[in-house]
């Protein structure tokens, strides 16, 4: 899933300066799963904003709403009656959701309430970790199912570097060395011989270096 983290409250308040009526719009997708942008998060953030603005003697009217997904025109359309009626929308979706909203509602300012942080998963409730950098050319078959691009701090395709110490990365003793994880797994799979195959220089065109990406299912285009 796409993991997002709520922006600092002060930053959000600054974005809303001058607005008297806004919609705080949650997303029922990934950010609900990671507890930062769903219905509950909308309720909490809206209350916080109201309280802060009341305290300043500058009250704000907030419409709370959550749609199934903000990265889908069908669901984004569901708020078309509300948007013309507010000064601005504070979206609690990931960066993709905020942009789908902004593209659909061109006359209304759209603000992000989250920082979109990474593609990953939850190892336990409230604990999320990065696993994929969406490079567009999956190499997991060669590295024991552990990604060197996402898990090595230097994205080395032929690691580990000289800074790997007792299974940890040189940048932080709390960060696992991605290459140690790869090697442990290759050993478990009895595939250590794969280590000596040099991974070729990557073609980053499939990553964002090739420009904004698209994926089109021709069979669905009519």
């Amino acid at each position: 899933m796409v993991v997002g983290e709520r922006k600092p409250f002060e930053e959000i308040m600054k974005m809303l300066e001058g607005h008297k009526k806004v919609m705080v719009l949650g997303c029922g997708g990934c950010v609900t799963v990671c507890l930062t942008g769903g219905q509950d998060a909308v309720r909490v953030l809206s209350s916080q904003i109201r309280m802060a603005r009341d305290k300043d003697g500058n009250p704000i009217e907030i419409i709370e709403k959550t749609v199934e997904r903000q990265c889908d025109p069908e669901y984004v359309d569901q708020v078309q009656e509300i948007v013309p009626d507010v000064d601005a929308v504070l979206s609690m979706a990931c960066g993709a959701g905020v942009q789908f909203m902004a593209e659909r509602y061109t006359k209304t300012p759209l603000y992000p309430a989250l920082n979109t942080t990474f593609v990953g998963g939850s190892v336990k409730e409230g604990y999320y970790v990065e696993r994929c950098q969406t490079c567009g050319e999956c190499k997991l078959a060669y590295t024991g199912g552990i990604c060197p691009i996402a898990r090595c701090s230097k994205s080395l395709l032929n690691g580990p570097c000289g800074g790997s110490t007792k299974g940890k990365c040189e940048i932080d003793p709390n960060v696992d060395c991605g290459w140690q994880l790869i090697l442990d797994r290759l050993r478990d799979l009895d595939q250590m011989d794969r280590y000596e195959q040099i991974l070729e220089i990557a073609d980053w065109r499939t990553s964002r270096d090739g420009g904004p990406r698209k994926m089109i299912r021709e069979d669905f285009q009519r």
Partner: peptide, 24 residues
Amino acid sequence: LSGDHQKFGDHPQAKNVFDLDSIQ
């Protein structure tokens, strides 16, 4: 060389490249 991670230096805010690694 691959190079030390920028975290150790005086510009930890920098974007790193690592288009190639030392072997490549």
